[in-house]
Nucleic acid binder design. Structure first.
Lengths: 340, 340
DNA sequence: AGCGTCTTGTAAAGCGCTTTAGTAAAGCGC
DNA sequence: GCGCTTTACTAAAGCGCTTTACAAGACGCT
C-alpha cells in the first residue's frame, strides 16, 4: 500500500525490464516468453499498477471518450437516449462525457469546443430548439459530430432522426379513421424540422381521408409541459376549435392532459389526443394515451455506431442521414368526436 | 486554419515569449504589462489556440472531472439525480463522466477502479442492490467516494440519503388515519437499508395508531416494475391480504397499478396505495397516486457538494452521514378500507 | 556607486505513457 | 565458425502542459 500510485517505470524496475517492454506487453503489440511475462504480470499485481489514462491519452492523442450533449437529462426521453448511448459505448470500451445544455446556445457552443480541444474523440449532439445557423457553423468546423433526434439545419454531418413524417401520418390516419377532421397540431416551431415533418405527415393523412382543403390548426411552442398546459388553456379559451389534438411530445401531452383534467374536460369524451414519443408511462394515465412511439434506444445505439463507423477523412457531402421507423401504440385517448 | 491544432509552444513563438509565460498568464498566476498580454492574447486568437486538456491533466495530476455511477440512467429517478449533479458540476466547472452499472457488481467495481487510476477526481456512487461487502472493500480502499441514495454497508465514506424512516412513517400515518391496519409493505430486501428504514417508519406509524402488535406483511424484491407486477399478482393470489399497500418506489408502484388495473381491481376502492419517490407523473395516473416525495435534485446537488467539501486527508471515522427531508404528496390513491 | 527590490520574464524538469528505431544475443544452415 | 534471421528486448524522443527555481534589467534609495 504505497502512497503514490505505481507508474510504468516502477513496474519495469520491479520486473527488471524497460518501460517500453511493459507498455508494449500491455498494449498487445508484443509477445514475450512465459517467464518474462510472468515477471511483469507479477510486478503489476504486486504494485497494484494502474495505467494513468491522462498520460496515455496525451501520448496517443485520443481519449477513447465520446461526448454526449443533450438538452436535459432529467427528461425521460433524453434519459433513455443517454442510457442507450452509454450502454453501447460501454460495450465498445468507450467512456462517455455527459453535458446538458438546457437549450442554451452558449453552452452548446462551449461543448462543441470540447471536441476541438480533443477532450473527446467525437460528439453526439442533440438539440431541442431552433437555431439561426450559429450552431451549424460550429458543428461544421468541428467535425466528428453526429446529430440525432432534431436537425440542425446547415450542419453537414451525419444525422439520425425518427421518421417524423410517418409519425405524423400514423397519428393523422388514426384520428381520421375515428372520424376526426378538425385536428389541432400542438407542436414545435416551424423552424424545427421535427415539427414541420410531423405536421406534414398529419396533413397528408388528413388530406388522404378528407380531401385537400383540410388545413389543420396549429399551436406552436416548445416541447415542454409548460407549453402543453398553455396550449390546453388556449384551446379551451378558443372554444375548443377541433375534436382532436396531435400533441407532438410526451411533455406537451402531459401538460395538456393535466389542464384538461383540472378543467373537467374529458379525454377522449370531449377531445381525443394522440401523443408522440411514448416514453412516459402513458398506459397508466387516465385515460391511457394513444401515442406515436419513437425507437429511442435504437436511435441512441445507432448514433454511436454512426459516430464510430463514419469515415471522417472523406465524408461525402451532404453527409448521410438516416430515419428510424416509428409505430403507433393505440390506447384509449382517441374516440369518435362528440356530436355537436 | 492550420492542420494541426496550435500548442502552447506555437503561441509562445508567435508572441515572442516563452511557453511558461503563456501558461502562467493563462492560469492567472502572472500579471503582465498590457503590451505583452495583448501580444499573447492576439497570438492565441490568431492561432485559435485551445489548451490540450490531457496534457494539462497529466501535468496537474487531476482531471477536474467527477465520476457519477448510477444503476440505470433511463430510470427517471436516477435521470433526475444525474441532471442535478451535472448542473451542479457544470456550475463549478467540472465535467462529469457517467457510468451505468445496471446493478452488476462487476461493473461497479470496474468503475470504482477508475478513480484509482486518477481518471476522475472523485466519485458519486449510487447503487441499488444488496452487496456482500465486496463493494465496501473497494470503496474504502479507493476513497474520495460519496455514497448517495442507497447505503453500501461497511463503506466508510460520506453518505447521503433521504429520510427513509420518516418517509415510511408519513406513509403509515396517512394510511392509518384513513383506517388502514393491514398494510402490505412492498419493498426491497431487508439487507438494503432503504427498505429496512422505510419499513421501520411504516411500523412505527402503525404501532402509534393501532398498538404494538401490528406486524405489517411484507413482499420483498427489487425496485423494479417487474417486481411491482409480481407483487400485485401475488397479492391477488394471496387473496388480498390487506387493505392498503406501501409500494416503496415509483417502479414498484407502477407495476402494481398496472396489474391491478388489468385485473379490474380498483384503487383505492379495493386497495389503497402509497408510493415512494414521486418522480413519475403520478398526478396524471388513474387514480392519481399519493406518494412520499424524495428531494432527488437536492440529493444530487448535495452529493456533489459533499464530494468537494469533504476534507479527504483527515476524514473522521465513521464518515458523516446526512439525511434529506421527505414529504408526503396526498392525491387520490388512498381511501378508507372497503367494508368486508 | 552600491544595494535591495520589484518587474518581467526564462530554462528546464517533470507528469506517465506510447512508439519508433535499433541492438545484443541466440539459433540455424552449411 | 560464418553470415543470416529471429527473438527479446532497450533507448530515447516525444505528447503539451505546469511549475519551480532562477535571472536580467529597471528603479528607487542611501
Amino acid at each position: 500500500m504505497s502512497d503514490k500510485t505505481a507508474s510504468l517505470k516502477d513496474v519495469a524496475g520491479a520486473a527488471g525490464v524497460s518501460v517500453a517492454t511493459v507498455s508494449r506487453l500491455l498494449n498487445g503489440s508484443l509477445s514475450l516468453p512465459e517467464t518474462t511475462r510472468k515477471r511483469i504480470e507479477d510486478a503489476i499485481r504486486d504494485l497494484n499498477y494502474r495505467p494513468n489514462p491522462h498520460a496515455r491519452r496525451l501520448s496517443r492523442g485520443r481519449s477513447d471518450t465520446i461526448g454526449l450533449v443533450v438538452p436535459d437529462i432529467a427528461n425521460p426521453f433524453f434519459a433513455t437516449f443517454v442510457a442507450a448511448v452509454e450502454a453501447e459505448a460501454d460495450s465498445r470500451d468507450l467512456a462517455v462525457s455527459l453535458f446538458a445544455t438546457l437549450n442554451r446556445t452558449g453552452r452548446e457552443v462551449a461543448y462543441l469546443e470540447l471536441i476541438e480541444r480533443k477532450h473527446v474523440d467525437g460528439l453526439i449532439f442533440v438539440t431541442n430548439h431552433a437555431d439561426e445557423g450559429q450552431l451549424a457553423t460550429h458543428i461544421n468546423q468541428v467535425g466528428k459530430v453526429v446529430i440525432a433526434d432534431e436537425d440542425v439545419p446547415g450542419a453537414d454531418v451525419p444525422k439520425l432522426f425518427c421518421d417524423n413524417e410517418q409519425g405524423g401520418y400514423l397519428a393523422g390516419r388514426h384520428l381520421a379513421a375515428h372520424g376526426h377532421r378538425d385536428v389541432l397540431f400542438a407542436g414545435s416551431q416551424e423552424e424545427m424540422i421535427s415539427g414541420r415533418r410531423r405536421f406534414d405527415g398529419l396533413r397528408r393523412a388528413l388530406h388522404e381521408h378528407w380531401g385537400e382543403d383540410i388545413v389543420p390548426a396549429t399551436y406552436r411552442g416548445n416541447y415542454t409541459v409548460e407549453f402543453g398546459r398553455e396550449a390546453a388553456r388556449r384551446f379551451i379559451a378558443d372554444g375548443m376549435p377541433g375534436t382532436a389534438i396531435f400533441a407532438t411530445s410526451d411533455e406537451i401531452t402531459i401538460g395538456m392532459i393535466e389542464v384538461f383534467r383540472a378543467q373537467g374536460i374529458s379525454v377522449p369524451g370531449d377531445v381525443s389526443i394522440v401523443g408522440f414519443d411514448d416514453v412516459a408511462p402513458f398506459h397508466l394515465f387516465a385515460p391511457s394515451v394513444t401515442a406515436i412511439r419513437q425507437p429511442v434506444r435504437d436511435i441512441g445505439r445507432r448514433s454511436l455506431a454512426l459516430l464510430l463507423e463514419t469515415n471522417w477523412q472523406d465524408l461525402a457531402s451532404p453527409a448521410p442521414q438516416e430515419l428510424m421507423p416509428v409505430e403507433i401504440v393505440v390506447r384509449e385517448s382517441v374516440a369518435p368526436p362528440a356530436k355537436r
